[in-house]
Each structure stands twice: as C-alpha cells, then as structure tokens.
C-alpha cells in the first residue's frame, strides 16, 4: 500500500467517525447527568441546516459552526424545558424532538438546497503535514477533527477529575441524594442537556461544512441514532466513544474501499460488518464482571423535588 492510499483510507475513516464522536460525546454528558435525549438526530439535522445557512450567508466557516451549535442548543433547550421543567416523559419528548427537527430543518433550509460552498480549511503545518504515512493524517485534518478529540479529552477530564463533574455524575446516579446534598439537580441537568445539544449541532454543522459541503434535507441519514448507540457501546466512558466511532466509521468506510479494491467480498455482508461489530462488542461488554455498573442509575427518570 502506498503512502498516499494508506493516508487516504485512514483519513476517510476519521472523517466518517468525527460527526459520531461529536454527537456521542455530547449525549454522553447529557446521559451521565441522568437525561436520556433521543432527539440527537433532530438536533444534529438542525445543526446541519443552520450551520450551512450561517456559513453560506456570512461566508465564514466559524460563524457557520457557531450557528450549528446554537441551533442544537435551541433544540436542546426546548427538550430541557419539557422534560426537566415540566417532567414530561423523556423518551416521548426525544422522539418528538427528532421528528420536529427533521421537519423544521427542511422548512428553514429550503432556501439553501442546491447551493454549494467550499469545504472548510484543513490544517497545514509546513514540514509536519507532508510527512509520509502520518503527516496528513495527524497534522492535516479538518479543524473540526481536532475540536472533536479536544472535546473528548476535556469531557474525560471534567467527568473524572473536576468537582463539577463529580456533582454531574451524582445527579445522574441518584438525583434524590444529589438534591439532599444541596445540588441543583434541574440546573445541572439542563446545562448537561444544552451541552449535548451544542455537540449534536456541531456534528451536524460538520456534515454540511466539511464532510459534504452542501445542504440537503434528511442528510444526517441516521447518524444521530448511531451516536446514541455508541454511548451505550462506550458504556458511558468518553474514550471508548472514540474507539466505538472509529470502529463504526472504520468498518463502514473500509468495506467501501474493500469493494473498490475488488477483494471479492459481497457488499451487503460488508455493510453489515459495523452492526455485527457493535453487537459483538455489546455482548462482550455486558458479559463482563461489572455489567450493570455502567449506566447512570437515574438515567431517564424525571426529577421532581420533594416538598
């Protein structure tokens, strides 16, 4: 395998994994606070539409990314208002959020269908980016990629090393105790939900600004749902999200390369590989010694303060 082909294959794996990493790490924080937001797909597609609209209107990728983030947060705020404010069932509200986001993004993005803009900039460090095999891969990615990995590192540190992170986990594990300790359960959950929305919005913006630089309704094509599955796959641990996203993105992309290289394997079987890998990983994870320790204990439960 030549240096160029090697890098190209691995870079497509990274581009396929990045939106999954972004959306999953946000949902992970939301879920660690005890909120199950099934509306990732809806927040993501709003981020994709508004990210493109913002970038196209302003001519700036950064402003586009910001618009994507804000759109995701607005959707998350709505979800938070319903589920944390009014204690509505989270599953139902999350599904409604996805349907709402899909429809609204189609409506708001209608004027931007069929337009295109240039792909967002890629990092270039003279010398380093030109190294064989790894130069482009490590030093020449879209800026979003570095943001995604930075976010994972930040979240990992925040959850395990910071005091607020500890409080957030306490909220997700036992909201009554957290409340008794004087922590504001609702405030914590609302902020965690907003963070999840911001990340999903950014993941959507990545699709329209870097992955395929145009907007089309329904273009997230189920990535929000995969991001949700990845959080479970990662057993709510930040770095495993990266592992899962690379595995999933990798299997999807590698099967396309395997077909192009004519290894003679049937496409349908190859397409199923990422899903098979997910099932195998879930079985392995759940057969471990601490199988029930992974999920936040109060996940999906509405909190109503005792009076």
């Amino acid at each position: 395998m030549t240096s160029e082909l090697f890098q190209l294959v691995l870079m497509t794996v990274v581009t396929a994994a990045t939106p999954l990493i972004l959306a999953s790490i946000g949902e992970l924080v939301t879920e660690r606070a005890g909120v199950l937001n099934l509306g990732v797909e809806g927040m993501m597609i709003m981020g994709a539409a508004m990210g493109f609209a913002g970038a196209y209107s302003s001519g700036s990728t950064a402003i586009g990314a910001l618009c994507g983030i804000l759109a995701g947060m607005a959707m998350a705020a709505l979800f938070g208002l319903l589920t944390i404010g009014f204690a509505i069932n989270q599953v139902a509200a999350g599904l409604a959020l996805t349907i709402f986001g899909t429809g609204l993004s189609g409506l708001l993005g209608a004027g931007f269908v069929g337009l295109k803009r240039d792909r967002s900039d890629q990092l270039h460090i003279p010398g380093l980016s030109d190294l064989p095999y790894v130069g482009q891969l490590v030093f020449g990615e879209d800026l979003f990629v570095y943001v995604a990995f930075g976010l994972v590192a930040g979240v990992a540190w925040f959850l395990s090393r910071s005091r607020t992170g500890l409080a957030l986990r306490a909220t997700g594990d036992n909201h009554q105790s957290a409340h008794a300790l004087g922590l504001s359960v609702r405030r914590m959950r609302f902020l965690a939900t907003l963070f999840g929305g911001a990340c999903a919005g950014l993941a959507g913006a990545y699709l329209t600004l870097a992955y395929t630089p145009f907007w089309s309704p329904g273009m997230t094509a189920g990535r929000g749902w995969i991001a949700l599955a990845l959080v479970v796959f990662a057993s709510w641990k930040p770095w495993r999200v990266v592992l899962g996203a690379l595995l999933f993105g990798g299997a999807t992309v590698l099967q396309l390369h395997a077909q192009a290289a004519a290894f003679g394997l049937p496409g349908q079987l190859l397409s199923a590989v990422p899903y098979l890998a997910t099932i195998v990983a879930l079985v392995l994870l759940s057969s471990g010694a601490r199988k029930n320790a992974a999920a936040p204990a109060a996940l999906g439960q509405a909190f109503i303060a005792p009076r």
């Binding site: 497509t12 396929a16 992955y211 329904g218 396309l256």
Partner: peptide, 16 residues
C-alpha cells in the same frame, strides 16, 4: 441517499 457515505464510496473508487 446518504451524502456522507456516497462521498466515501466515491473517494474509495478514486483511490483505486
């Protein structure tokens, strides 16, 4: 219809 995946498929073909 999945722009991302379609793009990846095209990339794989171009690489070959």
């Amino acid at each position: 219809f999945d722009p991302g995946k379609e793009a990846d498929a095209a990339k794989a073909l171009l690489a070959q």
